[in-house]
Write a protein that binds this DNA or RNA. Sequence first.
DNA 1: GTGGTCTAGACCACT
DNA 2: GTGGTCTAGACCACG
Lengths: 131, 131, 131, 131
Amino acid sequence: MRLEVDLRSHVPIYRQVIDGIKEQVAKGLLKPGDRLPTVRELAVELSMNHNTVAKAYQELERDRVIELTRGRGTFISSSEDIPNLAMRKLELREAMKKWLVEAHHLHLPDEEIGSMLRDVQIELRHTRGDD
Amino acid sequence: MRLEVDLRSHVPIYRQVIDGIKEQVAKGLLKPGDRLPTVRELAVELSMNHNTVAKAYQELERDRVIELTRGRGTFISSSEDIPNLAMRKLELREAMKKWLVEAHHLHLPDEEIGSMLRDVQIELRHTRGDD
Amino acid sequence: MRLEVDLRSHVPIYRQVIDGIKEQVAKGLLKPGDRLPTVRELAVELSMNHNTVAKAYQELERDRVIELTRGRGTFISSSEDIPNLAMRKLELREAMKKWLVEAHHLHLPDEEIGSMLRDVQIELRHTRGDD
Amino acid sequence: MRLEVDLRSHVPIYRQVIDGIKEQVAKGLLKPGDRLPTVRELAVELSMNHNTVAKAYQELERDRVIELTRGRGTFISSSEDIPNLAMRKLELREAMKKWLVEAHHLHLPDEEIGSMLRDVQIELRHTRGDD
DNA sequence: GTGGTCTAGACCACT
DNA sequence: GTGGTCTAGACCACG
Protein backbone atom coordinates (compact mmCIF):
# COMPACT_ATOMS: atom_id res chain seq x y z
CA MET A 1 0.00 0.00 0.00
CA ARG A 2 3.02 2.36 -0.15
CA LEU A 3 1.51 5.13 1.92
CA GLU A 4 3.79 7.73 3.42
CA VAL A 5 2.70 9.22 6.69
CA ASP A 6 4.58 12.02 8.38
CA LEU A 7 3.89 12.03 12.10
CA ARG A 8 5.57 15.40 12.52
CA SER A 9 3.27 17.07 10.02
CA HIS A 10 0.41 19.15 11.36
CA VAL A 11 -1.86 17.44 8.85
CA PRO A 12 -3.83 14.85 10.83
CA ILE A 13 -2.74 11.28 10.22
CA TYR A 14 -6.16 10.12 9.07
CA ARG A 15 -6.14 13.01 6.55
CA GLN A 16 -2.77 11.88 5.18
CA VAL A 17 -4.18 8.39 4.75
CA ILE A 18 -7.20 9.78 2.88
CA ASP A 19 -5.02 11.92 0.62
CA GLY A 20 -2.62 9.07 -0.05
CA ILE A 21 -5.37 6.70 -1.13
CA LYS A 22 -7.06 9.35 -3.25
CA GLU A 23 -3.71 9.97 -4.94
CA GLN A 24 -3.25 6.30 -5.70
CA VAL A 25 -6.71 6.17 -7.21
CA ALA A 26 -5.96 9.26 -9.31
CA LYS A 27 -2.73 7.64 -10.44
CA GLY A 28 -4.56 4.47 -11.39
CA LEU A 29 -2.57 2.36 -8.94
CA LEU A 30 -5.88 1.51 -7.35
CA LYS A 31 -8.76 0.66 -9.68
CA PRO A 32 -12.50 0.13 -9.13
CA GLY A 33 -13.08 -3.25 -7.55
CA ASP A 34 -9.60 -3.49 -6.03
CA ARG A 35 -9.58 -4.62 -2.45
CA LEU A 36 -7.94 -2.46 0.18
CA PRO A 37 -6.17 -3.88 3.23
CA THR A 38 -8.46 -4.38 6.21
CA VAL A 39 -8.67 -1.58 8.72
CA ARG A 40 -6.50 -3.51 11.14
CA GLU A 41 -3.96 -4.71 8.58
CA LEU A 42 -3.33 -1.20 7.34
CA ALA A 43 -3.15 0.05 10.92
CA VAL A 44 -0.38 -2.43 11.67
CA GLU A 45 1.39 -1.71 8.39
CA LEU A 46 1.40 2.02 9.07
CA SER A 47 1.99 1.58 12.81
CA MET A 48 -1.10 3.41 13.87
CA ASN A 49 -4.31 2.68 15.71
CA HIS A 50 -7.07 0.94 13.79
CA ASN A 51 -9.50 3.69 14.75
CA THR A 52 -7.41 6.17 12.80
CA VAL A 53 -7.55 4.02 9.68
CA ALA A 54 -11.27 3.46 10.21
CA LYS A 55 -11.83 7.21 10.35
CA ALA A 56 -9.98 7.63 7.07
CA TYR A 57 -11.93 4.80 5.43
CA GLN A 58 -15.21 6.28 6.62
CA GLU A 59 -14.47 9.64 5.07
CA LEU A 60 -13.36 7.98 1.85
CA GLU A 61 -16.67 6.15 1.80
CA ARG A 62 -18.61 9.37 2.31
CA ASP A 63 -16.81 10.71 -0.76
CA ARG A 64 -17.72 7.51 -2.65
CA VAL A 65 -14.06 6.70 -3.23
CA ILE A 66 -14.35 3.32 -1.54
CA GLU A 67 -17.08 0.95 -0.41
CA LEU A 68 -17.06 -0.49 3.10
CA THR A 69 -18.95 -3.66 3.92
CA ARG A 70 -19.05 -5.29 7.30
CA GLY A 71 -17.73 -8.79 7.20
CA ARG A 72 -16.59 -8.55 3.57
CA GLY A 73 -13.94 -5.90 3.41
CA THR A 74 -13.20 -2.64 1.65
CA PHE A 75 -13.12 -1.99 -2.10
CA ILE A 76 -12.42 0.85 -4.49
CA SER A 77 -15.78 2.17 -5.62
CA SER A 78 -16.94 2.10 -9.20
CA SER A 79 -19.64 4.59 -8.39
CA GLU A 80 -19.93 7.48 -10.76
CA ASP A 81 -21.88 9.92 -8.66
CA ILE A 82 -19.99 12.59 -6.80
CA PRO A 83 -21.45 13.96 -3.59
CA ASN A 84 -21.52 17.73 -3.13
CA LEU A 85 -20.08 18.34 -6.57
CA ALA A 86 -21.04 22.00 -6.80
CA MET A 87 -19.66 22.92 -3.40
CA ARG A 88 -16.47 21.00 -3.96
CA LYS A 89 -15.88 22.81 -7.26
CA LEU A 90 -16.14 26.10 -5.42
CA GLU A 91 -13.64 24.88 -2.84
CA LEU A 92 -11.35 23.81 -5.64
CA ARG A 93 -11.45 27.31 -7.08
CA GLU A 94 -10.61 28.78 -3.69
CA ALA A 95 -7.72 26.36 -3.30
CA MET A 96 -6.41 27.37 -6.72
CA LYS A 97 -6.60 31.03 -5.78
CA LYS A 98 -4.61 30.33 -2.63
CA TRP A 99 -1.78 28.66 -4.50
CA LEU A 100 -1.75 31.29 -7.21
CA VAL A 101 -1.38 33.94 -4.51
CA GLU A 102 1.47 31.94 -3.00
CA ALA A 103 3.05 31.59 -6.46
CA HIS A 104 2.90 35.37 -6.87
CA HIS A 105 4.69 35.84 -3.56
CA LEU A 106 7.38 33.47 -4.78
CA HIS A 107 7.71 35.69 -7.88
CA LEU A 108 6.88 32.73 -10.13
CA PRO A 109 6.08 33.85 -13.69
CA ASP A 110 2.96 32.44 -15.33
CA GLU A 111 4.97 30.21 -17.63
CA GLU A 112 6.61 28.53 -14.68
CA ILE A 113 3.23 27.99 -13.02
CA GLY A 114 1.96 26.46 -16.24
CA SER A 115 4.93 24.19 -16.66
CA MET A 116 4.88 23.13 -13.02
CA LEU A 117 1.22 22.27 -13.41
CA ARG A 118 1.89 20.22 -16.54
CA ASP A 119 4.75 18.45 -14.76
CA VAL A 120 2.52 17.34 -11.93
CA GLN A 121 -0.22 16.28 -14.34
CA ILE A 122 2.32 14.12 -16.15
CA GLU A 123 3.54 12.69 -12.87
CA LEU A 124 0.01 11.66 -12.00
CA ARG A 125 -0.68 10.29 -15.47
CA HIS A 126 2.64 8.57 -15.87
CA THR A 127 1.84 5.90 -13.35
CA ARG A 128 -1.60 5.66 -14.86
CA GLY A 129 -0.08 5.06 -18.25
CA ASP A 130 -2.81 6.69 -20.31
CA ASP A 131 -1.09 9.79 -21.64
CA MET B 1 -8.69 46.58 5.11
CA ARG B 2 -11.59 44.63 3.58
CA LEU B 3 -10.74 41.25 5.05
CA GLU B 4 -13.36 38.56 5.08
CA VAL B 5 -13.12 36.11 7.92
CA ASP B 6 -15.42 33.11 8.14
CA LEU B 7 -15.74 31.88 11.72
CA ARG B 8 -17.50 28.73 10.49
CA SER B 9 -14.54 27.68 8.40
CA HIS B 10 -12.12 25.16 9.82
CA VAL B 11 -9.23 27.29 8.58
CA PRO B 12 -7.82 29.01 11.68
CA ILE B 13 -8.72 32.68 11.88
CA TYR B 14 -5.10 33.86 12.04
CA ARG B 15 -4.47 31.85 8.85
CA GLN B 16 -7.41 33.56 7.13
CA VAL B 17 -5.95 36.92 8.08
CA ILE B 18 -2.57 35.94 6.64
CA ASP B 19 -4.13 34.63 3.44
CA GLY B 20 -6.33 37.69 3.10
CA ILE B 21 -3.42 40.11 3.35
CA LYS B 22 -1.28 38.04 0.99
CA GLU B 23 -4.14 38.04 -1.48
CA GLN B 24 -4.46 41.81 -1.33
CA VAL B 25 -0.75 42.14 -1.96
CA ALA B 26 -0.99 39.74 -4.89
CA LYS B 27 -3.91 41.75 -6.26
CA GLY B 28 -1.95 44.97 -5.88
CA LEU B 29 -4.46 46.45 -3.46
CA LEU B 30 -1.61 46.67 -0.98
CA LYS B 31 1.74 47.95 -2.31
CA PRO B 32 5.22 48.11 -0.81
CA GLY B 33 5.37 50.94 1.71
CA ASP B 34 1.64 50.92 2.43
CA ARG B 35 0.92 51.13 6.12
CA LEU B 36 -1.17 48.43 7.77
CA PRO B 37 -3.48 49.05 10.73
CA THR B 38 -1.95 48.31 14.12
CA VAL B 39 -2.59 44.93 15.64
CA ARG B 40 -5.15 46.38 17.99
CA GLU B 41 -6.91 48.47 15.34
CA LEU B 42 -7.30 45.48 13.05
CA ALA B 43 -8.42 43.32 15.95
CA VAL B 44 -11.19 45.76 16.75
CA GLU B 45 -12.13 46.18 13.08
CA LEU B 46 -12.43 42.40 12.60
CA SER B 47 -13.83 41.85 16.09
CA MET B 48 -11.27 39.30 17.11
CA ASN B 49 -8.70 38.83 19.82
CA HIS B 50 -5.56 40.93 19.26
CA ASN B 51 -3.44 37.86 19.95
CA THR B 52 -4.91 36.37 16.79
CA VAL B 53 -3.95 39.37 14.68
CA ALA B 54 -0.51 39.49 16.28
CA LYS B 55 0.05 35.85 15.36
CA ALA B 56 -0.87 36.60 11.75
CA TYR B 57 1.44 39.65 11.61
CA GLN B 58 4.30 37.60 13.04
CA GLU B 59 4.00 34.97 10.35
CA LEU B 60 3.70 37.64 7.65
CA GLU B 61 6.89 39.23 8.93
CA ARG B 62 8.67 35.88 8.90
CA ASP B 63 7.71 35.58 5.23
CA ARG B 64 8.95 39.16 4.63
CA VAL B 65 5.53 40.22 3.41
CA ILE B 66 5.41 42.99 6.00
CA GLU B 67 7.88 44.83 8.18
CA LEU B 68 7.23 45.57 11.82
CA THR B 69 9.10 48.54 13.18
CA ARG B 70 8.71 49.29 16.85
CA GLY B 71 7.04 52.60 17.40
CA ARG B 72 6.57 53.43 13.71
CA GLY B 73 4.07 50.84 12.62
CA THR B 74 3.66 48.05 10.15
CA PHE B 75 4.33 48.35 6.43
CA ILE B 76 4.13 46.20 3.34
CA SER B 77 7.69 45.11 2.66
CA SER B 78 9.60 46.16 -0.41
CA SER B 79 12.13 43.45 0.22
CA GLU B 80 12.96 41.30 -2.75
CA ASP B 81 14.36 38.28 -0.98
CA ILE B 82 12.09 35.33 -0.41
CA PRO B 83 12.81 33.18 2.62
CA ASN B 84 12.85 29.43 2.13
CA LEU B 85 12.26 29.75 -1.60
CA ALA B 86 13.25 26.19 -2.48
CA MET B 87 11.16 24.60 0.24
CA ARG B 88 8.17 26.74 -0.54
CA LYS B 89 8.36 25.77 -4.20
CA LEU B 90 8.23 22.14 -3.16
CA GLU B 91 5.23 22.85 -0.98
CA LEU B 92 3.58 24.64 -3.88
CA ARG B 93 4.12 21.59 -6.03
CA GLU B 94 2.59 19.40 -3.34
CA ALA B 95 -0.39 21.74 -3.12
CA MET B 96 -0.82 21.50 -6.88
CA LYS B 97 -0.67 17.72 -6.72
CA LYS B 98 -3.32 17.58 -4.05
CA TRP B 99 -5.41 19.96 -6.10
CA LEU B 100 -5.08 17.87 -9.26
CA VAL B 101 -5.92 14.70 -7.36
CA GLU B 102 -9.09 16.32 -6.09
CA ALA B 103 -9.87 17.61 -9.58
CA HIS B 104 -9.51 14.06 -10.90
CA HIS B 105 -11.96 12.79 -8.33
CA LEU B 106 -14.44 15.45 -9.44
CA HIS B 107 -13.96 14.26 -13.04
CA LEU B 108 -12.80 17.72 -14.10
CA PRO B 109 -11.53 17.60 -17.69
CA ASP B 110 -8.20 19.26 -18.50
CA GLU B 111 -9.87 22.05 -20.45
CA GLU B 112 -11.93 23.01 -17.42
CA ILE B 113 -8.78 23.06 -15.33
CA GLY B 114 -7.14 25.33 -17.86
CA SER B 115 -10.08 27.70 -18.06
CA MET B 116 -10.41 27.80 -14.30
CA LEU B 117 -6.73 28.69 -14.09
CA ARG B 118 -7.12 31.55 -16.55
CA ASP B 119 -10.24 32.75 -14.75
CA VAL B 120 -8.57 32.94 -11.37
CA GLN B 121 -5.43 34.53 -12.80
CA ILE B 122 -7.58 37.20 -14.39
CA GLU B 123 -9.49 37.71 -11.15
CA LEU B 124 -6.23 38.32 -9.32
CA ARG B 125 -4.86 40.59 -12.04
CA HIS B 126 -8.04 42.47 -12.64
CA THR B 127 -7.88 44.39 -9.41
CA ARG B 128 -4.21 44.90 -10.01
CA GLY B 129 -5.03 46.51 -13.37
CA ASP B 130 -2.04 45.24 -15.30
CA ASP B 131 -3.57 42.74 -17.68
CA MET C 1 -37.98 -13.65 -6.35
CA ARG C 2 -36.83 -10.30 -7.74
CA LEU C 3 -35.06 -9.09 -4.63
CA GLU C 4 -32.63 -6.23 -4.93
CA VAL C 5 -29.78 -6.32 -2.47
CA ASP C 6 -27.27 -3.48 -2.27
CA LEU C 7 -24.01 -4.64 -0.76
CA ARG C 8 -22.84 -1.04 -0.49
CA SER C 9 -25.71 -0.08 1.75
CA HIS C 10 -25.13 -0.01 5.49
CA VAL C 11 -28.43 -1.79 5.97
CA PRO C 12 -27.54 -5.39 6.85
CA ILE C 13 -28.14 -7.81 4.01
CA TYR C 14 -30.50 -10.04 6.01
CA ARG C 15 -32.50 -6.90 6.82
CA GLN C 16 -32.70 -6.05 3.10
CA VAL C 17 -34.00 -9.55 2.41
CA ILE C 18 -36.64 -9.16 5.12
CA ASP C 19 -37.70 -5.75 3.86
CA GLY C 20 -37.76 -6.95 0.25
CA ILE C 21 -40.07 -9.87 1.02
CA LYS C 22 -42.31 -7.73 3.22
CA GLU C 23 -42.52 -5.23 0.39
CA GLN C 24 -43.55 -7.89 -2.10
CA VAL C 25 -46.24 -9.06 0.28
CA ALA C 26 -47.45 -5.50 0.74
CA LYS C 27 -47.51 -5.06 -3.04
CA GLY C 28 -49.46 -8.28 -3.45
CA LEU C 29 -46.76 -9.91 -5.53
CA LEU C 30 -46.62 -12.57 -2.84
CA LYS C 31 -49.93 -13.85 -1.50
CA PRO C 32 -50.85 -16.12 1.43
CA GLY C 33 -50.05 -19.71 0.53
CA ASP C 34 -47.39 -18.82 -2.04
CA ARG C 35 -44.28 -20.91 -1.68
CA LEU C 36 -40.93 -19.24 -1.13
CA PRO C 37 -37.62 -20.64 -2.40
CA THR C 38 -35.71 -22.72 0.12
CA VAL C 39 -33.04 -20.99 2.15
CA ARG C 40 -30.32 -22.53 0.01
CA GLU C 41 -32.03 -21.79 -3.30
CA LEU C 42 -32.48 -18.15 -2.41
CA ALA C 43 -28.94 -17.96 -1.11
CA VAL C 44 -27.62 -19.18 -4.45
CA GLU C 45 -29.97 -16.92 -6.41
CA LEU C 46 -28.85 -13.84 -4.47
CA SER C 47 -25.26 -15.06 -4.19
CA MET C 48 -25.05 -14.78 -0.46
CA ASN C 49 -24.35 -17.01 2.50
CA HIS C 50 -27.27 -19.28 3.41
CA ASN C 51 -26.90 -18.23 7.04
CA THR C 52 -27.89 -14.74 5.96
CA VAL C 53 -31.05 -15.97 4.25
CA ALA C 54 -31.84 -18.24 7.19
CA LYS C 55 -31.59 -15.30 9.57
CA ALA C 56 -34.02 -13.33 7.41
CA TYR C 57 -36.51 -16.24 7.24
CA GLN C 58 -36.32 -16.65 11.01
CA GLU C 59 -37.24 -13.06 11.62
CA LEU C 60 -40.01 -13.22 9.03
CA GLU C 61 -41.43 -16.26 10.80
CA ARG C 62 -41.28 -14.50 14.15
CA ASP C 63 -43.38 -11.73 12.59
CA ARG C 64 -45.79 -14.35 11.17
CA VAL C 65 -45.12 -13.16 7.63
CA ILE C 66 -44.10 -16.65 6.57
CA GLU C 67 -44.52 -20.15 7.92
CA LEU C 68 -41.67 -22.64 8.00
CA THR C 69 -42.75 -26.27 7.98
CA ARG C 70 -40.01 -28.82 8.24
CA GLY C 71 -39.83 -30.92 5.14
CA ARG C 72 -42.61 -29.15 3.29
CA GLY C 73 -41.10 -25.76 2.66
CA THR C 74 -41.75 -22.12 3.38
CA PHE C 75 -45.01 -20.33 2.64
CA ILE C 76 -46.46 -16.89 2.94
CA SER C 77 -48.58 -16.97 6.04
CA SER C 78 -52.34 -16.50 5.98
CA SER C 79 -52.34 -15.86 9.68
CA GLU C 80 -54.26 -12.84 10.78
CA ASP C 81 -52.69 -12.27 14.16
CA ILE C 82 -49.93 -9.73 14.44
CA PRO C 83 -47.35 -10.30 17.15
CA ASN C 84 -46.43 -7.36 19.33
CA LEU C 85 -48.98 -5.13 17.66
CA ALA C 86 -49.02 -2.43 20.32
CA MET C 87 -45.27 -2.18 20.53
CA ARG C 88 -44.85 -2.13 16.80
CA LYS C 89 -47.37 0.67 16.47
CA LEU C 90 -45.32 2.70 18.90
CA GLU C 91 -42.21 1.97 16.88
CA LEU C 92 -44.04 3.01 13.75
CA ARG C 93 -44.89 6.32 15.35
CA GLU C 94 -41.28 6.83 16.33
CA ALA C 95 -40.17 6.02 12.80
CA MET C 96 -42.64 8.52 11.42
CA LYS C 97 -41.35 11.17 13.79
CA LYS C 98 -37.82 10.55 12.59
CA TRP C 99 -38.65 11.05 8.95
CA LEU C 100 -40.78 14.08 9.69
CA VAL C 101 -37.83 15.59 11.54
CA GLU C 102 -35.64 14.81 8.53
CA ALA C 103 -38.24 16.35 6.22
CA HIS C 104 -38.17 19.50 8.33
CA HIS C 105 -34.40 19.71 7.98
CA LEU C 106 -34.81 19.41 4.21
CA HIS C 107 -37.25 22.37 4.39
CA LEU C 108 -40.00 20.24 2.86
CA PRO C 109 -43.43 21.88 3.20
CA ASP C 110 -46.29 19.77 4.55
CA GLU C 111 -47.96 19.58 1.14
CA GLU C 112 -44.84 18.03 -0.36
CA ILE C 113 -44.67 15.50 2.46
CA GLY C 114 -48.29 14.63 1.86
CA SER C 115 -47.89 14.28 -1.88
CA MET C 116 -44.72 12.26 -1.50
CA LEU C 117 -46.54 9.94 0.87
CA ARG C 118 -49.46 9.54 -1.56
CA ASP C 119 -47.01 8.86 -4.38
CA VAL C 120 -45.43 6.01 -2.51
CA GLN C 121 -48.81 4.61 -1.48
CA ILE C 122 -49.82 4.56 -5.12
CA GLU C 123 -46.55 2.91 -6.08
CA LEU C 124 -47.23 0.14 -3.57
CA ARG C 125 -50.86 -0.24 -4.60
CA HIS C 126 -50.25 -0.08 -8.29
CA THR C 127 -48.54 -3.43 -8.42
CA ARG C 128 -51.26 -4.78 -6.18
CA GLY C 129 -53.84 -3.60 -8.68
CA ASP C 130 -56.55 -2.65 -6.22
CA ASP C 131 -56.64 1.10 -6.44
CA MET D 1 -30.51 19.54 26.98
CA ARG D 2 -33.18 16.89 27.73
CA LEU D 3 -31.75 14.18 25.49
CA GLU D 4 -32.85 10.63 26.06
CA VAL D 5 -30.31 7.96 25.26
CA ASP D 6 -31.12 4.27 25.45
CA LEU D 7 -27.95 2.27 25.97
CA ARG D 8 -29.78 -0.99 25.29
CA SER D 9 -30.92 0.14 21.85
CA HIS D 10 -29.02 -1.13 18.84
CA VAL D 11 -28.99 2.39 17.48
CA PRO D 12 -25.49 3.76 18.14
CA ILE D 13 -25.33 6.29 20.95
CA TYR D 14 -23.83 9.03 18.78
CA ARG D 15 -26.72 8.48 16.34
CA GLN D 16 -29.26 8.91 19.14
CA VAL D 17 -27.56 12.16 20.10
CA ILE D 18 -27.72 13.37 16.50
CA ASP D 19 -31.39 12.44 16.16
CA GLY D 20 -32.24 14.01 19.51
CA ILE D 21 -30.66 17.34 18.60
CA LYS D 22 -32.22 17.33 15.13
CA GLU D 23 -35.57 16.72 16.75
CA GLN D 24 -35.12 19.63 19.13
CA VAL D 25 -34.22 21.87 16.21
CA ALA D 26 -37.30 20.67 14.30
CA LYS D 27 -39.41 21.37 17.36
CA GLY D 28 -37.96 24.83 17.69
CA LEU D 29 -36.53 24.15 21.13
CA LEU D 30 -33.17 24.98 19.63
CA LYS D 31 -32.97 28.01 17.36
CA PRO D 32 -30.26 29.40 15.06
CA GLY D 33 -27.56 31.03 17.15
CA ASP D 34 -28.35 29.06 20.29
CA ARG D 35 -25.30 27.71 22.00
CA LEU D 36 -25.03 23.99 22.64
CA PRO D 37 -23.27 22.51 25.66
CA THR D 38 -19.57 21.89 25.11
CA VAL D 39 -18.56 18.44 23.96
CA ARG D 40 -17.31 17.60 27.42
CA GLU D 41 -20.24 19.10 29.30
CA LEU D 42 -22.75 17.11 27.29
CA ALA D 43 -20.63 14.00 27.67
CA VAL D 44 -20.77 14.33 31.45
CA GLU D 45 -24.48 15.18 31.41
CA LEU D 46 -25.29 12.10 29.34
CA SER D 47 -22.68 9.95 31.10
CA MET D 48 -20.77 9.10 27.98
CA ASN D 49 -17.32 9.64 26.55
CA HIS D 50 -16.56 13.02 25.02
CA ASN D 51 -15.44 11.33 21.81
CA THR D 52 -18.95 10.02 21.31
CA VAL D 53 -20.44 13.48 21.63
CA ALA D 54 -17.73 14.87 19.36
CA LYS D 55 -18.62 12.33 16.69
CA ALA D 56 -22.27 13.35 16.90
CA TYR D 57 -21.40 17.06 16.72
CA GLN D 58 -19.17 16.46 13.70
CA GLU D 59 -21.90 14.73 11.77
CA LEU D 60 -24.35 17.47 12.71
CA GLU D 61 -21.87 19.97 11.36
CA ARG D 62 -21.53 18.06 8.09
CA ASP D 63 -25.31 18.36 7.77
CA ARG D 64 -25.06 22.09 8.53
CA VAL D 65 -27.29 21.71 11.57
CA ILE D 66 -24.68 23.20 13.87
CA GLU D 67 -21.46 25.17 13.61
CA LEU D 68 -18.36 24.06 15.48
CA THR D 69 -15.57 26.49 16.27
CA ARG D 70 -12.46 25.64 18.15
CA GLY D 71 -12.06 27.73 21.22
CA ARG D 72 -15.48 29.37 20.90
CA GLY D 73 -18.04 26.63 21.18
CA THR D 74 -20.90 25.09 19.24
CA PHE D 75 -23.94 26.89 17.87
CA ILE D 76 -27.12 26.05 15.99
CA SER D 77 -26.51 26.99 12.39
CA SER D 78 -28.48 29.65 10.57
CA SER D 79 -27.21 28.36 7.25
CA GLU D 80 -29.84 27.83 4.63
CA ASP D 81 -28.03 25.50 2.27
CA ILE D 82 -28.69 21.79 2.58
CA PRO D 83 -25.95 19.39 1.56
CA ASN D 84 -26.93 16.46 -0.67
CA LEU D 85 -30.52 17.60 -0.90
CA ALA D 86 -31.43 15.43 -3.89
CA MET D 87 -29.99 12.25 -2.43
CA ARG D 88 -31.55 12.87 0.95
CA LYS D 89 -34.97 13.33 -0.64
CA LEU D 90 -34.59 9.93 -2.27
CA GLU D 91 -33.64 8.41 1.07
CA LEU D 92 -36.67 10.05 2.65
CA ARG D 93 -38.85 8.45 0.00
CA GLU D 94 -37.30 5.07 0.74
CA ALA D 95 -37.92 5.57 4.45
CA MET D 96 -41.55 6.36 3.70
CA LYS D 97 -41.87 3.24 1.58
CA LYS D 98 -40.45 1.05 4.32
CA TRP D 99 -42.79 2.71 6.76
CA LEU D 100 -45.83 2.12 4.58
CA VAL D 101 -44.86 -1.51 4.05
CA GLU D 102 -44.67 -1.99 7.80
CA ALA D 103 -47.96 -0.17 8.25
CA HIS D 104 -49.55 -2.57 5.76
CA HIS D 105 -48.28 -5.55 7.71
CA LEU D 106 -49.87 -4.09 10.85
CA HIS D 107 -53.16 -3.75 8.89
CA LEU D 108 -53.23 -0.01 9.52
CA PRO D 109 -56.04 1.57 7.51
CA ASP D 110 -55.30 4.72 5.52
CA GLU D 111 -57.34 6.88 7.88
CA GLU D 112 -55.19 5.78 10.80
CA ILE D 113 -52.07 6.60 8.81
CA GLY D 114 -53.45 10.03 8.08
CA SER D 115 -54.40 10.72 11.66
CA MET D 116 -51.07 9.47 12.94
CA LEU D 117 -49.36 11.81 10.52
CA ARG D 118 -51.36 14.78 11.74
CA ASP D 119 -50.73 13.78 15.36
CA VAL D 120 -46.98 13.63 14.97
CA GLN D 121 -46.88 16.84 12.94
CA ILE D 122 -48.80 18.56 15.71
CA GLU D 123 -46.49 17.10 18.34
CA LEU D 124 -43.51 18.53 16.50
CA ARG D 125 -45.18 21.87 15.95
CA HIS D 126 -46.71 22.14 19.37
CA THR D 127 -43.45 22.81 21.12
CA ARG D 128 -42.55 25.13 18.28
CA GLY D 129 -45.72 27.07 18.87
CA ASP D 130 -46.39 28.13 15.29
CA ASP D 131 -49.48 26.17 14.39
C1' DG E 1 -11.37 26.31 28.00
C1' DT E 2 -12.80 25.08 23.22
C1' DG E 3 -12.89 21.30 19.75
C1' DG E 4 -9.61 17.82 17.20
C1' DT E 5 -6.81 13.95 17.16
C1' DC E 6 -4.76 9.82 18.64
C1' DT E 7 -3.82 5.41 21.24
C1' DA E 8 -4.99 1.26 23.67
C1' DG E 9 -8.03 -1.94 24.33
C1' DA E 10 -12.68 -3.74 24.60
C1' DC E 11 -17.12 -5.55 22.78
C1' DC E 12 -20.58 -6.14 19.13
C1' DA E 13 -23.10 -7.12 14.60
C1' DC E 14 -22.60 -9.06 10.35
C1' DT E 15 -20.93 -12.41 6.72
C1' DG F 1 -12.46 -12.17 10.50
C1' DT F 2 -14.80 -7.94 8.74
C1' DG F 3 -16.01 -3.09 10.01
C1' DG F 4 -18.52 -0.19 13.84
C1' DT F 5 -18.79 1.58 18.27
C1' DC F 6 -17.38 2.92 22.70
C1' DT F 7 -14.44 4.15 26.79
C1' DA F 8 -10.52 6.10 29.11
C1' DG F 9 -7.17 9.02 29.01
C1' DA F 10 -3.68 11.75 26.73
C1' DC F 11 -1.90 15.74 24.03
C1' DC F 12 -2.41 19.59 20.79
C1' DA F 13 -3.96 23.93 18.24
C1' DC F 14 -6.77 27.70 18.62
C1' DG F 15 -8.90 31.91 20.65
